Computed example of a mutant assay.
Amino acid sequence: MMLGLSTSIYAQQQVIHLWPGAVPGETAAKQAASVTADGSNNVKRLTDVTDPVIEVFPAPAKNNTGAGVIVCPGGGYSILAINLEGYEIATWLNKLGYTVFVLQYRVPKKEAGALQDAQRAIRMVRSRAAEWKLQPEKIGLMGFSAGASLTARAATQYNVNTYTAIDKADSLSARPAFGILVYPAYLDKGENRKLTPELQVDKNTPPMFLFATADDSYGNSALVMAGALRDARVPVELHFYAKGGHGYGLRAGNPAADVWPGLLENWLKGAVK
């Protein structure tokens, strides 16, 4: 759908640093994320994130739905595929009327810090929703691969206090209004490939949309998560296609990338009212 988008067309407005002071649990000095030397497949990969930020992509005024989506790129919790699963997704969602916040969460291998970043991002966006003409109760979370793992963790652990409050934003709920998991990974680390134990799904877990394929080595993650949501009577929509693999984003030439955006667009119309 959107292969080879130039960064010049990304309608990014501002960069918001999540932690004005010390970053909780972070020992490295704050600095801008590093771009790795690997630019294969036209993917910009970030690493060494020690100063987490959200990059804001406002919806056009003419079709602003009043809903916001915080997007978590994937990369195995080692890197962030920032254009493939961040900026390109933001451009597409903007066209549908959603304001997007691309999250640069901590990597590499800082899963606990990443959850702190996700919780803080939700609260900050909610606290400043009026700036982007958003409704605070319509802030959702979307992720790809490891970013989908982070989305699932944030959606099921929103009542866990992972850091000490630093301002008024932290008095707000960290529960996303909805969760979107596209080719999720790491959700089946339980015994016999069952649901990862930290994912405590219950009736208060937000509604979710899941998309994965049978030829994805991580495909079981979507199946076990969807099953847990169904068992808890949480509204869930699962699409499981035959082919597509992993890591395709929105890019043309992949059978899965050709179908999931339309399915998600329809789902959002019902989920975000």
Rank of each mutant, 00 (worst) to 15 (best):
R175M: 10
A271S: 09
E237P: 00
L103N: 03
A118N: 05
D117N: 05
A185F: 06
V234N: 12
Q116R: 15
H239S: 03
K273E: 07
K243V: 10
L46D: 01
K243W: 05
G270E: 08
K168D: 15
T164N: 06
T151N: 10
G4T: 06
G179N: 01
V234G: 09
A118L: 03
V100A: 04
M1Q: 13
G143W: 05
F209N: 02
S40L: 02
G253L: 08
W267R: 00
A242S: 15
Y87T: 14
N161A: 15
T99R: 00
L46F: 10
I54F: 01
G25I: 14
R193N: 14
K203Y: 11
R128P: 06
L141Y: 01
Q14R: 05
G4E: 11
P24H: 15
Q119N: 05
Y10R: 09
K95Y: 03
P108R: 03
P73W: 03
K243T: 14
A165R: 06
N204H: 14
V107H: 01
G249W: 07
E26H: 03
N64S: 11
V236I: 14
L5M: 11
T65L: 11
Y163S: 08
A90M: 05
V125W: 04
S6P: 05
R128C: 12
I122Y: 04
Q31S: 15
Y241M: 12
P261R: 06
L134C: 05
G219P: 05
K194R: 14
A256M: 09
D231I: 07
A242W: 10
P108W: 02
A11P: 09
V43C: 04
A28D: 12
P207M: 09
W19Q: 02
L195K: 01
A32C: 05
G179V: 14
Q104Y: 06
Q13A: 08
Y98I: 15
M208S: 05
S34C: 13
W132I: 10
S127Q: 08
L134K: 03
A129P: 02
L84C: 02
L46R: 00
P207N: 11
S34F: 11
K44V: 15
L93F: 12
T162V: 15
T99G: 04
L250C: 09
L5Y: 10
D38Y: 09
G74C: 04
F144R: 04
H17V: 08
G66Q: 03
G270A: 03
N192E: 14
V160D: 14
L199Y: 08
A37V: 11
A256N: 08
E55A: 04
T36D: 09
I166C: 07
Q135G: 04
A11F: 02
L250A: 07
L172Y: 11
G140I: 09
L264K: 01
A252K: 11
V49C: 00
V43F: 08
K273F: 07
G86C: 02
